[in-house]
Write a protein that binds this DNA or RNA. Structure first.
Lengths: 249, 249
DNA sequence: CTTAGTAAATTGGTCGACCAGTTGCTGGTG
DNA sequence: CACCAGCAACTGGTCGACCAATTTACTAAG
């Protein structure tokens, strides 16, 4: 182990997973104009031979780019470049490669933004079914609090149901994406302690009322107030910048 | 081909990729309490044998869940369940599985939400470096218009730089995520035609000015106006509900 | 010359085997 | 008895081979 420490200092982060190298290579192919949007990519076998790596690594790279909507793969047919422009592709790919740490301020800030909007849309467009789901989520939340004081999951699940009720699929998806990180922070800082949970439930009840009555204006303010309460409470705990668990969005 | 059509009608969407089946199974493991947050997952070999599929499929499933922040895999060590609650996990996983089609209304609506907020934050917090990047992006946009009338990529790249200047990493990431889909729609509907591009550039210049002068209020309105222009123009083209290319967020 | 039918080639999907690094036990030694 | 070297059994990462389905190209009949 000791004998390798020097070597490690030398190479350090040069681990360079094959998949990442391939993403870079594909980026170059696109930059040089050899690969235009709509074009079919060479077969995975071609690419693996061309890049000198196994086909699995190529598949991993493709899968990753596919996640971000840059490629699109049709079974038994081929992989094509999505209908994006070259310029944007370059920018996106480089950004995607170093999509890193979140910070708490950004997370809270964005959450308020999304949630307030979601609540307003929910009040405007909720169906009867949505109300049922919201009521159920609220009940589950109350029930969980009776058993164990921290019920972060149930709390956030109520918020997710609001996003669902907004009838805005994109908003809903984005909420789904950032929720795990929010949960991570909340558990870390033990937000729901000594009476906080009860207050949260009360506010949830108010919000649900507004949604039922389709009072768009009031629900926005109620949600803003609810989140303001929580985020300011969190601030009193630790100033720590604190990086999150994984780098995903 | 014809002889299979009946069979296809029978099985239809029962393609059931192994990876998806595994995601379901893991979900059950978590539901039944056999897998608690923080626990280490059984090794990939165990899982592949247990589920009766190849290890590759297991890896695919894990990658997918990892992408959504539900699992976390440490090389040469093991895969663990992220620090999420069981309740939320259930909700998230089922939702993730059917994270499907976007619709245009949701996309535009959410975009306005994010962009206005991004512009305001950018005006408030932009650095000198940000201004430089914004100016460069604007120049590139103008230049592209002189050559070819449609310069959707450069247009959106300017918007992405605004998100970057907002100093909100989460907001920036979310913009990166929805931008490809926006581009898809714009190219599809040929938004930038006959003078639209020039108008857009003028509005971009105004927005940039406001950001330089840190005029938070005006930049919000300017961005709202800019997006309103575009989205309403798009509306005049086709009422078509239109599903997008791939189901990714 | 057109067209239907079939077979070969190519595609992505899946699999089990091998690789390198880590962990933890085990037995020998101070 | 404590401790450390060394080995063995894991881990995830990568690879090339096989599979089924699709596409394509060729051939033969009309």
């Amino acid at each position: 182990m000791m004998k390798n420490s020097l070597l490690k200092n030398f190479s350090e982060i040069v681990v360079e997973k094959p998949a990442d190298k391939i993403i870079q290579q594909i980026r170059e192919l696109i930059s040089s104009g050899q690969l235009k949007p709509g074009d079919k990519l060479p077969s995975e076998r071609m690419l693996s031979e061309r890049f000198g790596v196994g086909r699995t690594s190529v598949r991993d790279a493709i899968r990753k780019l596919e996640f971000y909507g840059i490629l699109r793969t049709l079974p038994q047919s081929g992989t094509v470049v999505a209908g994006l422009g070259i310029t944007a592709l370059e920018g996106l790919i480089t950004d995607v490669l170093e999509l890193e740490r979140r910070d708490f301020r950004s997370l809270v800030e964005t959450r308020v933004l999304l949630e307030v909007s979601a609540a307003e849309s929910a009040a405007e467009r909720r169906t009867d079914d949505d109300i049922l789901k919201l009521a159920n989520a609220l009940t589950a939340h109350k029930k969980a609090i009776l058993n164990n004081r921290t019920a972060v999951e149930e709390d956030l699940l109520f918020h997710l149901k609001i996003a669902e009720a907004s009838q805005n699929s994109v908003l809903n998806s984005l909420m789904l994406i950032i929720t795990p990180e929010i949960m991570h922070y909340f558990n870390k800082h033990d937000v729901c302690g000594e009476g906080r949970a009860e207050i949260a439930v009360e506010q949830h009840e108010i919000i649900l009322d507004h949604i039922v009555n389709q009072n768009v204006e009031k629900v926005g303010n109620a949600m803003r107030e609810h989140l303001k309460d929580i985020s300011e409470y969190v601030k009193t705990l630790k100033p720590e910048p604190s990086q999150n668990g994984n780098g995903r969005v």
